[in-house]
Computed example of a mutant assay.
Amino acid sequence: MGKAVEILNAEEVAEGAPDDRTSGIPSSHLTVDHTLSIPEMKPHVVELCKDLFKKWSNLDDSHFSVETLSGGITNLLLKVSVREENGETVNLTVRLYGPNTDYVIDRERELQAIQYLSAAGFGAKLFGVFKNGMVQSFIHARTLAPSDMRKPKLAAEIAKKLHEFHQVEIPGPKEPQLWNEIIKFFRKASTLQFDDSESQRKYVTVSFEEVHNEITELKELTGHLNAPVVFAHNDLLCGNLMHNEDEGKLYFIDFEYGSYNYRGFDIGNHFNEYAGYECDYSLYPTKTEQYHFFRYYLKPHQPNEVSEEDLEALYVETNTYMLASHLCWGLWGLIQAKISPIDFDYLGYFFWRYTEYKKQKEKCFTTAKAYLAKSKGIFH
């Protein structure tokens, strides 16, 4: 990874005015069609690299190799290896945005955040941007699986890393974005029309009046918790966690949905992701597992000194905002069902998330109200 940093020497950067959003990071107006096969895609990726990085402009195409790293349910990641004239190889990650993702993702906010998070030691370094993606440093690590996240040692490492992440300050407004995002998703999700009759039949069974009432009720309840506002990842699923076992290093990647938000939402959303894409919520962490996580989050170097009061407070906060995670990503799923060409049951995803929301609501509301009655004299 250190070698790759050299490609950004000032005199070697591509000519042309950089994107204002990325403070001198090289930019290109080229696009790469994500639907192409890797052999078909390679010449376009090579052209992009030569356009972005001047020092490679005269290299023969045989000096470049391209392979797929992963294909999630939003983006496509490619590993590009470049054999330089001196025989050394530079590895890069090229991330192609999923089609239509700008409909739900604020790319300007993401690009700004990446630079500050990278400077603080999070994620991959940003080397270049292009019309439908970005080029970043290559991370030598494996992507976690859902089962990894609940392993006590890794859970502690994730908690400590998240504590550090939440200390990073990103310039700009600090208002929490949770309810703005949920309402934005609600408005878009509630006005869809599907060409496919079966999808439309399922879609019209959604009671958006009921969903709106749930949003209103949950927003009111969480407002009493006074949860700290931090710069949150908001999408800390296993696919956005990478681990290098040999070096003992953990990485957070992909800050597409990052924003200032409530601490409890980021943690509760992470716990929901223990269920994986299959949404097996029997895997949601137990209270004992959550307390283990909280100790390392609240006092990374003195986990056994966290008070019971602080553990209980964060438990209530997390498991109330966990409900908001279901509403947020459920509505997101409806939008994706309409706009995404990726083969994933996004409509089903909404129903899995909303069903789990309704299943957990009474318990979480009761716990939160009892806590607020005891600690703040609210909901007696």
Rank of each mutant, 00 (worst) to 15 (best):
G2Y: 03
G2Q: 04
E6Q: 09
L8P: 03
E11R: 00
E12G: 12
V13Q: 15
E15H: 14
E15S: 15
R21K: 08
P26C: 04
D33Y: 05
E40H: 11
E40C: 07
M41N: 08
H44P: 06
C49G: 11
L52C: 05
K54L: 05
K55T: 11
S57T: 04
D60M: 01
F64R: 06
V66L: 06
L69F: 10
G71K: 01
G71H: 04
S81E: 12
R83M: 13
E88K: 05
N91I: 00
V94L: 11
Y97K: 07
T101R: 02
D102P: 02
D102Q: 07
I105L: 06
R107C: 07
E108F: 00
E108M: 00
L111E: 10
Q112I: 10
Q115H: 12
F122S: 07
G123H: 01
K125T: 14
L126F: 08
F130I: 08
P146T: 07
M149C: 09
K151C: 12
Q167T: 07
E169G: 10
E169H: 08
G172S: 04
W179H: 06
E181C: 09
R187D: 13
R187G: 14
T191H: 08
L192C: 11
D196N: 14
S199N: 08
V204F: 06
S207V: 00
H212W: 09
E220G: 10
P228L: 05
A232R: 00
A232Y: 01
L237V: 09
L237R: 05
C238N: 13
D246E: 15
G248T: 02
F252M: 12
E256K: 02
S259D: 13
I267H: 03
N269I: 03
H270D: 12
F271A: 03
Y274K: 07
G276M: 03
G276C: 08
E278R: 03
D280H: 09
S282C: 05
Y284P: 02
T286H: 10
T288G: 13
Q290I: 08
Y296N: 14
Q302D: 15
Q302G: 15
S307Q: 02
S307W: 01
E317Y: 11
N319I: 04
L327V: 10
W332F: 04
W332K: 03
L334E: 11
L334W: 01
S340L: 01
I342W: 02
I342L: 06
L347P: 06
W352T: 15
W352H: 15
E362M: 13
E362C: 15
K363C: 15
F365V: 14
F365C: 07
T366E: 14
T367W: 01
A370N: 13
G377A: 07
I378Y: 11
F379T: 09
H380L: 07
